[in-house]
Nucleic acid binder design. Structure first.
Lengths: 337, 337
DNA sequence: TGACAGGGATAAAACGTTATACCAAAATCC
DNA sequence: GGATTTTGGTATAACGTTTTATCCCTGTCA
């Protein structure tokens, strides 16, 4: 119908000043109960919704947070987003999400867009090969930023990660206890910290157990890449009887490849995944994996961001959420030959 | 270091007025090449990024679009988002995504948040049971809105859908040609138009073929629900030899259940999926499915939104993208008994 | 009664841009 | 060479809020 109502319209309708109306809307200041009612009534009648950007501009407060992640479609990531969203929502913040598709340049543009559209803070997992300049961009604009999952060497930012090394070490020990002697690491592509941490845990466990040289096999994150990789490994390393994987998708792919060859996960090759996505439990056979709660990670993420916003000079926080082993059916003692 | 630079800072640095600086930044007005250079240099030097909300507020233009969808983690949906994002990005718009998790109330809150934070438009797929009031919210605020995938009876909005009925009819005919006589429809829960359209296509094909009463089986969207449903169907309708599914996830779940029972997709029961998500091709055996290009759908979505923004009084557009059958290995002639 | 306190409301200045109107100087015209 | 146009630039008022300082009024106290 009519034009979009502004505070002035509401004030006029209620017969008060804009200043008063503003105070009522925010529940601030000292205004009598009578006028409060009048204003609220007028606002309702006109279907008034305040203009957030004008408010934000004047007050300096900013209740919009941006998030940029390498892959929205990944269910693990989606759960993190849910967790963060929920907490933000309950605090009156709005989280808006962008998919960087692991492209450092696209991500830089996204971060710039966040700055232009004045987000109050940014949560992000740095794309592979993120240059130092991207981090500088954030610091020169004094934008509260928290990274998660992947930590960069350049980052001088709050961070929430996973106890990666500890987890893969645990997985490796588990496989060794079952009797496996030739254990490989599968998944991921180089240059992100998550992966090097996981490889580190795997490698050091191997060393500690005296189990010979590590075998690290690169592959993209995803079912299909996992399948191809498994086929290759069977061909080139027929002595490998167990796999520690960089993610559940790869692990499931590996299992599928085994089945396609007429073999069985847990028989010819034992497989441990990482993340415990929903599919891990549903796979046939169900996947043994290192579980972390992405939802909780998301909530924690949001909490750290809120603290950082409230206390910009707080020292940098780096924290790690634990992973626990979930035993299912893809890890068994090796076959006797 | 210093405070965040504003246009005034840049102008001072370049020795010109704010007005001039503004014009240079936007590439508008009549300014000599010399001063253009000076201003651009100053801007770069100070790492200046304009405050989008101040600009938007004054100019009335708004280059932020909101999107609310029922499930971000769904790879089909994620592809739609990518498509829309890409087109928006190339036009200088920013798309921010919210996950409604198919909760009408949460979605309403998200839309309200979009209004408060003055998005220039909203793309959304209505959650199940979205009440009329949600649509009214959008119209009273004159917010350019486009729905997609699911069309509501209340909606008086632009819409992009899929040729659902046509696709399931085609799938049903395909199965009938292979020789199947007892064909069931599996997947989805009631009350969204996508599903009723698909059921409609299935049912009318059945009628046309003279194949008896339809069997429609509800289940949640997802692998696990599909598995459970398949087990139930085998038990209660042993005569069913083919399935038209509401989505690939459910279809894959159904296939998994068959395998778990020692049966084979395409042998005991033929299965046709819907969407052609990446996993459909990778599944063992690969899934026959009705393919639609979610990326293209996303681009189209963005294009419609831009048109609507440019031409607010344009008549409502409702368009449908086609689905084409992709033959793989889960549909075969029925076994002889 | 005069001073004072304090509750209730408001005018006006800000926030960082863009749009409008206007001006000075240089260039063009007849 | 004076009038007119063009070019390049600027001062200033918006945009819709919040904040600050200020003001008026009523009641209280000594």
């Amino acid at each position: 119908m009519s034009k979009k109502p502004k505070l002035e319209t509401v004030a006029k309708e209620a017969g008060v000043s804009v200043a008063t109306a503003s105070q009522v809307m925010r529940g601030a200041g000292r205004i009598s109960e009578l006028t409060r009612k009048k204003v609220r009534l007028a606002a309702k009648k006109l279907n008034y919704v305040p203009d957030g950007r004008a408010a934000a501009m004047r007050s300096g407060e900013n209740r919009e947070i941006g998030l940029s992640i390498h892959k929205i479609a990944n269910p693990f990531n989606a759960e993190i987003i849910s967790g963060a969203s929920d907490l933000f929502e309950s605090e009156g913040y709005l989280l808006s999400v962008l998919d960087a598709r692991d492209d450092a340049e696209r991500q830089r543009n996204q971060l710039e867009a966040f700055i232009r559209s004045t987000r109050g803070g940014v949560l992000w997992v740095p794309a592979e090969d993120t240059p130092k300049s991207t981090f500088e961009l954030l610091t020169t604009h004094q934008l509260p930023s928290v990274t998660f999952l992947r930590r960069s060497e350049f980052a001088d930012l709050d961070h929430i990660g996973i106890e990666n090394a500890k987890a893969t070490a645990e997985a490796t020990h588990h496989l060794a206890e079952l009797g496996h002697r030739r254990i490989a690491f599968l998944g991921g592509t180089a240059r992100v910290a998550v992966r090097s941490e996981r490889i580190e845990g795997y490698t050091s466990a191997l060393a500690q157990l005296g189990l010979g040289a590590p075998i690290v096999w690169d592959c993209e994150d995803g079912r299909v890449a996992g399948m191809q990789a498994m086929d290759e490994i069977r061909r080139q390393h027929p002595d490998v009887t167990a796999l520690v994987c960089n993610g559940d998708m790869v692990a499931i792919g590996a299992c599928l490849a085994l089945q396609r060859r007429g073999e069985m996960p847990g028989r010819e090759v034992s497989v441990v995944g990482f993340d415990d996505i929903q599919d891990a439990e549903l796979a046939v056979p169900p996947l043994t994996t290192m579980a972390v709660s992405p939802y909780m990670l998301g909530r924690k993420l949001a909490r750290v961001m809120l603290e950082r916003i409230r206390e910009p000079d707080m020292p940098i926080t780096v924290s790690h959420v634990p992973a626990r082993m979930v035993l299912r059916e893809t890890t068994k003692p090796p076959m006797q030959r």
